[in-house]
Design a protein around this nucleic acid. Structure first.
Length: 275
DNA sequence: CTTTCAGCCTGGGCGC
DNA sequence: TGCGCCCAGGCTGAAA
């Protein structure tokens, strides 16, 4: 479920809560998940930093008493995954039973809950194992330049909405934000990616940055599945203009918002003003 | 190379 | 209240 702003929100909150804590116990309950044992064990390590890489939450773990090098615990939440920090070490306010949990020496525990069980855990010994390849750009960074964007889109006949969700080009955008960004800059989701002129490209880039920045400010979107690391809700959903509003009225032109299907995913847009 | 499509899972909401 | 659908924010890998 979570896209870049939701993952960013969770990572920031977990960083605030967990930086400097030492992991005293690591448990995985769901057999679909596995973590390596021995030298790569998490127990005794200190949480140096919690951050976002693409749509993944990354915990950088110092060696602690292990005498080994640093490692990274990398969590991809996919559709319904949640990382929830509980200062009292008990999972309340949450119906789900956890797939995994990590207790901290100083008290408190991190729970990984994930109704649909699509989420993944990874323990990495180097950043290369989980960082996006060089050619892949995070739209919140300064690498997201016009020069790169123009070059990346050129020649592509893929519909722009599908292209925006390509994690092998641009990391972080999913179904909600792709629809919202295209609405914001009044571009049709059906337009071939390579057909955008310079002006449209500029507006698409500006909208992408603007929508993501705003969503992060508001701690992301909340639907039934998403809660942040404190089990609280984001507030950005009240700002959604088209997503989930099929047959609703477009605030810009008064037209009717349409739901179509692209690559087996719902796309919401206003045919009246998105050209 | 491209695009399509099933599959991974579970639960909520809808119409009957 | 119950049943059978359809829907869901992601991503992979096989097939066409």
């Amino acid at each position: 479920m979570p896209e870049l702003p939701e993952v960013e929100t969770v990572a920031r909150q977990l960083h605030e809560a967990m930086q400097g804590l030492r992991i005293s116990r690591s448990r995985v309950f769901d057999k679909k998940l596995s973590l390596p044992r021995g030298a790569l064990g998490l127990t005794g390590r200190v949480i140096n930093k919690v951050w976002r890489s693409g749509k993944q939450v990354v915990l950088s773990l110092d060696p602690g008493r292990s005498g080994c090098g640093p490692i990274w615990l990398v969590v991809h939440l996919r559709m319904t995954g949640r990382l929830i920090w509980c200062a009292n070490g008990t999972l309340d306010r949450v119906g789900d039973k956890p797939r995994a949990r990590w207790d901290c020496e100083q008290g408190g525990a991190l729970f990984f809950c994930d109704t649909r069980r699509f989420g993944t855990l990874q323990v990495c010994q180097s950043e290369e194992e989980f960082l996006p390849a060089r050619a892949i750009v995070d739209p919140t960074t300064r690498n997201f330049t016009m020069r790169w964007f123009r070059q990346a889109l050129s020649g592509s006949s893929q519909p722009i909405k599908i292209w925006l969700m390509r994690q092998d080009r641009l990391v972080g955008l999913g179904n909600i934000y792709a629809s919202e960004i295209l609405y914001d800059c009044a571009l049709s989701p059906l337009r071939p990616a390579g057909s955008l002129n310079e002006e449209e490209l500029r507006e698409l880039r500006a909208s992408t940055r603007k929508i993501l920045r705003r969503a992060i400010q508001h701690c992301g979107v909340t639907f039934s599945d998403f809660q942040d690391s404190r089990g609280e809700m984001g507030s950005y959903q009240v700002y959604l203009r088209v997503y989930g509003r099929a047959a609703g009225t477009c605030k810009r032109c008064g037209g009717s918002i349409l739901r179509i299907v692209q690559a087996q995913r719902g796309t919401f847009y206003c045919p009246g003003c998105q050209k």
